[in-house]
Design a protein around this nucleic acid. Structure first.
Length: 316
DNA sequence: GTCCAGGGATTCA
DNA sequence: TGAATCCATGGA
């Protein structure tokens, strides 16, 4: 039955941690976006209750608002939806977190990270959007990646109707952001000039994005084929693209294709590994990579996401 | 191994 | 408040 709202019953799902852990770059906390103070609630005894946390974003061509509730996640869309599989798939509501967590190494740093970030999940994103976003991520901070992606979507993405913002507020000039546009397809990006892309503040990353879009649009590069390949070959294939090294390839394999063994090592994860596992002596880059590849088990990528988020939000 | 490529956000003085 | 540093890096 078609509806514009649904409750996804899921336990152990921390929506905020998941959407704000640097996997995806198009989610916005709703209150922040409108400049309203965060909604505070009190129970009957006057005790503060965790504020209702809503996130607004775009998945494919769907505008979505997600809200963490006691029973799971409430999802609202701007038009009736008959089949919600795209949302379950994106949020990976069917993933068995308990089983994944049990495969993590039983050491103090990992236990701390899991305790601190319980409910953090890996998303399953669209390969093109994920690849493009991470090409744009190189030596950028997460805030800036969000800005670049927002500009790209706003200027070149297909408009999406939204029930969250009045027409007059389609463009928020204070933040320069809006969430009412789909991510532009490879065909669309392939036809944008390098100058126009640079105008989205992507700098030297523009030619790489353009080359990837053209490769895909012209059929020379097949994103669907990656899915069929074993990890090592898939990684090598992605790395044929300009601007895609091992780190970015691993991000795409983990966040879009579900290769749980992929373990992206960026400055944060490197810092986490160094501090948590080699506190006394400086470990070489090579040693850290070898450790990462052998220590964390079959869901190493999941473990990596816990360490990354733990490091970024709890330790610094 | 070294150096370079945007530029905004954040930190520091 | 102005300067310095940092950044989910890869390529020449």
């Amino acid at each position: 039955m078609a509806a514009t709202e649904i409750l996804l019953r899921v336990r152990d799902y921390d929506l905020a941690a998941t959407l704000d852990s640097g996997q995806a770059f198009r989610w916005q906390k709703e209150d922040q976006e409108h400049g309203r103070p965060a909604r505070e609630f009190q129970d009957h005894a006057g005790e503060p209750v965790t504020p209702v946390c809503s996130w607004v974003g775009v998945i494919g061509k769907h505008w979505v608002r997600l809200t963490q509730t006691r029973d799971g996640i409430r999802a609202e869309t701007d038009r009736p939806v008959a089949d919600w599989r795209w949302l379950h798939d994106y949020l990976q509501t069917g993933a068995e977190l308990d089983i994944v967590l049990k495969t993590f190494p039983d050491d103090a740093p990992m236990r701390d990270a899991v305790t601190a970030c319980r409910g953090l999940r890996l998303l399953r994103q669209d390969p093109w959007e994920c690849l493009a976003s991470f090409i744009l991520s190189s030596t950028k901070q997460i805030v800036q990646i969000r800005q670049i992606v927002a500009l790209l979507c706003e200027r070149f993405g297909e408009p999406i109707n939204s029930c969250s913002v009045e027409p007059a507020a389609r463009f928020d000039s204070a933040t320069g952001r809006t969430l009412q546009f789909a991510f532009p397809s490879p065909d669309t990006v392939a036809r944008i000039s390098e100058a126009e892309l640079r105008a989205c503040k992507m700098g030297f990353r523009a030619p790489s994005l353009l080359a990837a879009a053209r490769g895909i649009a012209e059929g020379g590069f097949d994103l669907e084929r990656i899915r069929q390949l074993p990890y090592t070959e898939a990684r090598a294939e992605l790395m044929k693209l300009r601007g895609v090294g091992g780190k970015i390839a691993d991000c795409v394999l983990l966040f879009a294709y579900g290769f749980d063994g992929a373990f992206p090592v960026d400055v944060w994860v490197e810092r986490a590994l160094q501090q948590l596992y080699f506190p006394r002596r400086r470990a070489s880059d090579k040693r850290l990579r070898h450790f990462a590849a052998t220590h964390f088990g079959p869901h190493a990528g999941y473990a990596q996401q816990y360490l990354f988020h733990y490091m970024r939000t709890k330790l610094k």
